[in-house]
C-alpha cells in the first residue's frame, strides 16, 4: 500500500531540519470522503505528513538503523484548511535526540500562511528498556521512503521492500 503523504524534500539538513512539500490534488480520493462536497485535506493526514517528514529526518540522523515510531503528539493546532490545488510545505526540526527517542517541532505552511503547528515525539523502539524484541528487519524505513528520498536528490540506502 502507498501511504506516502509527502511528494519530495526541498531542504534536508542532516540531524537538524528538513522541509518537504505536498501537492494536494482533486484526483486524490480521500478528499472526497471526509466532507462530501467540501474537499479538504483531513487534519490527521497533515499530522501523518509531519510524522513522515520528521520521522525520516530522525531516521536519517542515525543512518536509518533505528526503527523510528511515532510515540506522542505533543501539539497539533490547525489554523486553516488545505484545499485541492494547494501546495503545502512541511517544516520539521529536531529539538532533541537521544539513544531511545527524539522530539521534533514543526509547522505546515501554504504560501505565507501557517496552516498548522505540529510537535511530535518518536521512539527508537529497539532501545526500549523493557527489553521487548521486535522483528529484525526495519519495517519502518521501507523502500517507498527510499524512492521519495532519491527523487529529492538525497542519498538513501537500499531499504527493504514494502509489504
Amino acid at each position: 500500500m502507498r501511504w506516502i503523504w509527502i511528494d519530495k524534500f526541498i531542504e534536508f539538513n542532516s540531524g537538524s531540519n528538513a522541509v518537504a512539500i505536498k501537492n494536494v490534488t482533486m484526483a486524490e480520493e480521500y478528499l472526497h470522503d471526509n466532507f462530501p462536497g467540501f474537499p479538504i485535506m483531513p487534519e490527521c493526514l497533515m499530522i501523518e505528513s509531519m510524522a513522515q517528514t520528521a520521522g525520516i529526518l530522525v531516521g536519517e540522523a542515525r543512518q536509518f538503523k533505528e526503527k523510528v515510531i511515532l510515540a506522542k503528539i505533543n501539539k497539533a493546532v490547525f489554523f486553516n484548511y488545505v484545499r485541492p490545488g494547494d501546495t503545502i510545505k512541511i517544516h520539521a526540526k529536531i529539538e532533541s535526540i537521544a539513544d531511545e527517542a527524539a522530539s521534533t517541532t514543526g509547522k505546515i505552511t501554504c504560501g505565507d500562511e501557517t496552516i498548522a503547528e505540529i510537535d511530535l515525539m518518536f521512539s527508537h523502539i529497539d532501545q526500549n528498556l523493557a527489553g521487548k524484541q521486535f522483528p529484525k528487519e526495519n519495517f519502518v524505513f521501507t523502500d517507498l521512503f527510499g524512492v521519495v528520498l532519491r527523487a529529492s536528490g538525497i542519498a538513501a540506502p537500499a531499504f527493504g521492500s514494502d509489504k
Partner: peptide, 22 residues
C-alpha cells in the same frame, strides 16, 4: 506514561541547560 518520561527529560535538559542521562 513511558514515552512521557523521555519527553520530560528532553524538556528538563532544555529548561535547565543540563545533560540528563535517562
Amino acid at each position: 506514561e513511558s514515552i512521557d518520561f523521555l519527553d520530560i527529560v528532553f524538556r528538563m535538559e532544555k529548561a535547565f541547560g543540563i545533560k540528563i542521562p535517562r
